[in-house]
Design a binder for these strands. Structure first.
Lengths: 80, 80, 80, 80
DNA sequence: ACGTTTGCGCTTTAGC
DNA sequence: GCTAAAGCGCAAACGT
């Protein structure tokens, strides 16, 4: 088998792995949709729920930044 | 326990399910990144790879859309 | 006139240009709506029409993407 | 010419009108992009600009609702 | 490392 | 009122 063919096979495998992962990702996204739908049918307002999720993600992000900042301080001060 | 508290518990559970799924989704997205990185380190051009993935996805969508249109025609023409 | 005031004026002009364009865009969108309505009143099925428009757009994109991929290949292979 | 052919021609004309309008719409959207780009190169922060445009649109909407409310009052009170 | 550009996800809106 | 599609904003990825 030529080197080009080997490379082509490798490429194909990489592409297939990516496409497989993208499908999984879409599956998860659909699951999220389903949960929102279930919550809605239970009487919850999805718009509000999405706002909550967004806010909590933001807070988590803020928390991470605070931790990173503290870590920077520790390093700068030689506190391990 | 009051009804309000029950609703709050339900809401919390829904939110937690969603956040768990979102994390999984992010994990998959990171895996995709890793595959691209691995392919790049093997000598492949990621820009080309992304173009291939994009084209294949587009082709799949076009195919699906054609099928959907044919189905619409069938319905519109009363052909089953 | 202060520099701040000048900047404020510039900003206002940019904002107004954008808002004017956004209005035009909305006008066009309304025109599209009108055409669909006219077609519907002539007896055409708008669902089918929208499917056709969507498919044609998708095909155009696929075509463009194929060209772009070929160009990427050329560049990657140093074929000018 | 058969009736079917006439209908097909009409349909084609409708589709073409729609596609023409969609192109115009895209052109306007590109113009908006250009204005933001120009503003950015002048030193303005586009994210802030977009926030301003969004806010003004919201305010315009609120204003319209207020006017509508006043009109409702006028009518209800027989004040022409 | 920064700035630009493109892709992706979310929000909102329109149609049924 | 609900579902689906289009438009918008953001963020990651590429090139400089």
């Amino acid at each position: 088998m030529s080197e080009g063919a080997v490379a082509a096979d490798q490429l194909r495998l990489f592409i297939e792995r990516i496409e497989r992962l993208e499908e999984e990702k879409k599956g998860i996204a659909d699951d999220v949709k389903d949960v929102y739908a279930e919550a809605k049918s239970t009487g919850f307002d999805t718009k509000t729920m999405r706002a909550i999720v967004r806010l909590r993600k933001l807070e988590a992000h803020t928390r991470q930044e605070m931790d990173a900042l503290l870590e920077t301080y520790r390093t700068a001060l030689g506190l391990a």
